[in-house]
């Protein structure tokens, strides 16, 4: 068990290093600098700024400086927000994004599993077609289409929810739903097809031959085995929710990481872009690691933790 975790942690560090290096090189490949913006800065100011951000050093030196500060978990100063570092921006805005993302993920997983199970148990009946119709809709309608539509009807016209901003829990309902729609639809479809497949397995017939009533067959034998593929897509779905939060936070004016990230792109605030990229990448790598561990716990056939033969 320990050996597996150590190996995985080592792999994670390597991947992070690759990502950090790639982002660094990509940022350096951009023609121009962040200060070649609208207003011309005086020569001396520009020079001071360049040296403050180590932009006047040769690239290998810049790389070493960057890597050194990364090791100290210091993502550097922001260029746009002169008084704040990338670390403070992330630590201020991440809780907001985390709340939004977690709510969306929970909503997606719970509702998606439920709908998928019901659709599979009523395979090829009306309720199945209904659930599948909504699932295809959820996959096809992008969140940045769904969100303004919900704003317009549910918030502006019918006044059921606040339109935008982030001032309390009720403000998180609409953005959470908009963010959850795609993963919810994906989980519903996957759970349904996985469950329909499991229901045809021989061991389900065995369970029925034991005389177990349908609810026991479903709970004990079907659901656990059908959930396996869902666990594997939790990683990609988390990615979807994170990137989806870029547009959702923009539409609902939510002060989360996504909003800062989108702004940093148009502001060419390279330290912030790199910081957010690295932060999200490590988060995702960590989520994938947790998912792998969870998978090993659910499926006894997968031997993550070598017990030394069986």
């Amino acid at each position: 068990m320990n050996r597996y975790i150590i190996r995985r942690l080592f792999q994670m560090v390597i991947t992070l290093w690759v990502i950090a290096t790639l982002t660094f090189l990509m940022m350096k490949a951009i023609p121009g600098d962040p200060f070649s913006g609208e207003k011309k800065l005086p020569e001396q100011v520009l020079k001071n700024l360049m040296s403050y951000y180590h932009l006047d050093e040769p690239i290998p030196v810049q790389y070493l400086i960057y890597m050194k500060s990364l090791l100290q978990l210091d993502l550097g100063p922001s260029i746009k927000y002169e008084t704040r570092t990338v670390n403070t921006i992330i630590s201020e805005s991440f809780p907001v994004s985390a709340q939004l993302g977690t709510q969306a993920l929970i909503l997606a997983v719970v509702t998606g599993l439920l709908l998928g199970v019901v659709a599979a148990l009523r395979h090829n009946r009306l309720i199945d077609y209904g659930a599948m119709f909504f699932a295809v809709l959820g996959i096809s309608v992008p969140s940045f289409v769904l969100a303004p539509l919900m704003q317009k009807y549910l918030a502006v016209e019918w006044e059921l929810f606040p339109v935008a901003t982030w001032e309390g829990w009720e403000y998180s309902i609409l953005p959470s739903i908009a963010l959850a729609a795609f993963p919810l639809a994906t989980i519903t479809r996957l759970m349904r097809s996985s469950m329909v497949e499991v229901l045809t397995q021989d061991y389900i017939r065995t369970a029925r031959s034991k005389g177990l009533p349908p609810y026991l067959v479903v709970f004990r034998h079907t659901i656990r085995n059908s959930i396996l593929p869902i666990v594997t897509i939790i990683g990609p779905l988390t990615v979807g929710i994170l990137t989806g939060s870029f547009v959702i936070e923009k539409i609902f004016s939510i002060p989360g990481i996504g909003k800062y990230f989108v702004e940093s792109i148009s502001n060419r605030d390279y330290p912030l872009i790199m910081g957010v990229t690295l932060f999200y990448s490590s988060l995702l790598i960590f989520v994938n690691f947790l998912v792998d561990l969870a998978y090993g716990l659910i499926d006894p056939r997968i031997q993550l933790f070598k017990k030394g033969g069986n």
């Binding site: 990509m26 951009i30 792109i265």
Partner: peptide
Amino acid sequence: WGLPYLLTVILLLVV
């Protein structure tokens, strides 16, 4: 594969 798809695309487009 480990890179998040849209995030990578965004970075590439920034570049």
